[in-house]
């Protein structure tokens, strides 16, 4: 217990400094928050228009109310879990500043986990809380009740870890190719589309839905959001959580393997 506490004290400053860092450019940060909330509203009005012009009251099993909740929760989820770990690692490799982290008695990946937590925390306060306030207090949209919120929180923490491990894996690619900009852009588009952050996976053909749910993408945004909506129940809920758990383990192993390979290949640039 004491050791865990000690570990925590060692890495916690990385989370805090991440928060302090964004706070040191307040104008930039406000724009970021504003942009995040704007995106939500743009998508919101888009779906509103889609539903207005549709002859049926439900689309792919979503009512308008559910769709609105989906938009809020999925944007929030995807912004909370996307902290850009892959780009940060790639940058450190490219300019060689990774050296300054490797000369410290810390685990590089744990350090990044804590940085991700720091990013999560400030985004939670400044983006998620306002969105949640509008969603619950103003629009009264909590379709699945309090149990669904609990399940969401649990599923969300798994999807946070999945996205983190996934990004880490992409960051490690930089150890081999040095520049990963193109790859990163492609990855972000693919993830945004296939994770359900843009369109609910329920709108895709049945076979694609199944495939995506089985890939880590679906586990990132779609699964937790569906929990919030109370749309996953019974066997389906169990399967979804199981899939998420499986991905955590699988990506964790893959990460460990890739890291041991990558760190041997690493050539610190510059100097």
């Amino acid at each position: 217990m004491k050791r865990i506490f000690q570990r925590f004290r060692t890495y916690w400053p990385f989370a805090v400094s991440e928060i302090q860092m964004v706070m040191s450019y307040p104008a930039n940060y406000l724009m970021f928050v504003f942009g995040g909330i704007m995106t939500t509203f743009v998508t919101y009005y888009l779906w509103l228009a889609v539903f207005k012009s549709s002859p049926t009251a439900t689309l792919a099993g979503f009512t308008l109310q559910q769709m609105i909740a989906y938009v809020f929760v999925s944007t929030m989820t995807s912004s909370l879990i996307s902290v850009g770990t892959d780009q940060k690692i790639a940058r450190e490799v490219r300019d060689g500043s990774i050296a300054m982290n490797l000369i410290k008695p810390i685990r590089y990946r744990i350090m990044y986990l804590f940085k991700a937590i720091g990013n999560f925390l400030h985004q939670f306060v400044l983006i998620a809380l306002p969105l949640l306030f509008i969603l619950i207090a103003v629009l009264h949209l909590m379709p699945g009740g309090i149990t669904a919120v609990g399940l969401y929180v649990f599923s969300f923490s798994l999807s946070f870890v999945i996205q983190f491990l996934f990004d880490n894996l992409f960051g490690l690619v930089a150890f081999f190719t040095i520049n990963t900009w193109g790859l990163s852009v492609t990855k972000n588009v693919v993830v945004a589309f296939f994770s359900g952050a843009v369109i609910p996976l329920a709108f895709f053909p049945e076979w694609l839905q199944r495939t995506l749910l089985f890939f880590p993408f679906g586990s990132m945004v779609y699964t937790p959001t569906m929990f919030y909506l109370g749309k996953f129940a019974g066997l389906q809920a169990a399967a979804a959580i199981l899939t998420q758990g499986l991905w955590v383990v699988l990506l964790g192993i893959l990460n460990h393997w890739a890291w041991t390979k990558a760190v041997k290949r690493l050539t610190i640039l510059g100097g």
Partner: peptide
């Protein structure tokens, strides 16, 4: 060990 690489920094740039 303690290390200084003259053309790099280990200081937290924004803090």
């Amino acid at each position: 060990i303690g290390v200084v690489f003259g053309q790099r920094t280990q200081l937290w740039w924004d803090l």
